[in-house]
Structures are given as structure tokens and as C-alpha cells.
């Protein structure tokens, strides 16, 4: 039986569309974990990246943190946290946040560094306060790079959230892990397809956000 047969069987089975173990519920769970991790990571990394980028200090420290965080294996970290903290959301959030912080941190820092200083000088000279300069002059121009960092983080987090199932949590990983355990290849492939689809949906989502939020003047000016 071909892989595509498995996929189509999985999605045609009406049992997969209802209840706790149904596709809609698992997708929502998956997105819930992912966006929670992404939100925490953004809440930590964006202010730090933007402020350090704005002042121009600490860039090398950030690069070091990012390199170190990249060396941590997400799956291993998850299992270790499961041992140390038990079953729950926290042991899942730690590796996911650790995964999402470096790209957000580095891109927001670099986005602020690469903002043309001339408009900032002009804005200050026209009598704009520091907050207005940040939100009306620097951020709109830095946005594409910041979004690209968030997108990288989102894709990686959505992919990696799948392993939450190995420590007894929900999400689309459940289909894969349970399927592997029960040797039910149809469920495994179906779950994998959903995870891949969700990751690709992140590309589309951030493409849309970029279209809406980034000024055509910035998009065209690059």
C-alpha cells in the first residue's frame, strides 16, 4: 500500500474527525502549545532584542546565547524536563521556548541595528519623542526582518511540538506516537501529514501578516 493510500484512508475515516482524539481537537491542541511557546519566547526575546539592537550594545553576547541555545537538543531537553518536572505543560514549554528564542532574539537585534539612522535623526529633529520614534519610525522599517525571525521560530516550534506526545501530552504528535506504538501506519502517516501541513501553514500565515503589516514602501524599498 502506498503512502498516499495511507494518507487518504486516514482522512476518510470519520472516526478521526470527532472527540478527544479527533483531528480538529488535536490541531487546536497543537496550535495551542505552539503559540503559547511562541508567545513566551517572543515576550522574552523581542524586548531584549529590540532594546539591545536600539542601543547597539550586547550583540556579541546575543550571538553567543544563540549559539549555545542551538546546541541544546530539543527532544533530549524535553525528556530531561519530563524527568525533572514530571508530566505537564512546563516541561514541554522549556525546550520549545529554548528553540524559539534564538531566531527571535537575533533577528530583532539585527533588525534594529540595520535601521537607517537618517530617518531616526530626522524624526528626533522634528520633535518626535523616543516612544514615537521606536513605534512610528524604527519598528515599521525593522518589521520584515523581525517577522522572518518569528516565522523561523514558528516553523521550528510547530514541527517540534510533535514530540510533546512522547511525554504524554496531546497535539498532533499523539497520532504519530500512538500509531508507532500500535504499529498503525495509517495513523502515523496521517499525523505526520497534518504536522507538515501545519508547518507549511505557518509560511502562509507569516506571508499574509507581512502583506498586511509591512508598508509597501518598506517592501519595495529593499
Amino acid at each position: 500500500m502506498s503512502i498516499f493510500q495511507f494518507i487518504s484512508d486516514f482522512f476518510r475515516d470519520s472516526a478521526h474527525w470527532h472527540g478527544q482524539d479527533g483531528i480538529p481537537h488535536r490541531v487546536l491542541e497543537h496550535l495551542g502549545y505552539s503559540f503559547m511557546a511562541l508567545g513566551i519566547a517572543a515576550g522574552l526575546a523581542l524586548p531584549v532584542g529590540l532594546v539591545t539592537g536600539h542601543t547597539g550594545r550586547g550583540g556579541n553576547a546575543l550571538a553567543l546565547i544563540a549559539t549555545a541555545a542551538r546546541a541544546l537538543p530539543s527532544y533530549g531537553l524535553l525528556v530531561l524536563m519530563f524527568f525533572w518536572l514530571g508530566i505537564g505543560l512546563t516541561p514541554v514549554m522549556i525546550p520549545l521556548v529554548a528553540l524559539a528564542v534564538p531566531p527571535i532574539l537575533l533577528t530583532s537585534y539585527e533588525a534594529m541595528r540595520t535601521v537607517d539612522p537618517a530617518p531616526v535623526d530626522a524624526a528626533r529633529g522634528m520633535g518626535m519623542g523616543p516612544a514615537a520614534v521606536l513605534f512610528q519610525v524604527e519598528l515599521p522599517v525593522a518589521l520584515p526582518l523581525i517577522l522572518s525571525g518569528l516565522r523561523s521560530a514558528a516553523i521550528q516550534v510547530v514541527s517540534t511540538t510533535a514530540i510533546a506526545a512522547t511525554v504524554s501530552l496531546g497535539g498532533l504528535g499523539r497520532f504519530v506516537i500512538d500509531g508507532l506504538y500500535q504499529r498503525n501506519y495509517e495513523t502515523v502517516v496521517g499525523g505526520a501529514t497534518l504536522i507538515a501541513g501545519l508547518a507549511l501553514a505557518m509560511i502562509a500565515l507569516f506571508w499574509l501578516v507581512g502583506r498586511v503589516a509591512v508598508s509597501p514602501g518598506v517592501r519595495g524599498g529593499r
Partner: peptide, 18 residues
Amino acid sequence: ARRAARDAAVEPAGRAAL
């Protein structure tokens, strides 16, 4: 080094966006 680190962080999705 910082530039390399940033390039690394936005790879490759960010590159495509830019």
C-alpha cells in the same frame, strides 16, 4: 560574527522573505 549569527538565525525562511 554577529552577521553570520543573524544569517544563521533567519535561514532559510527569512532569506526567502527578504
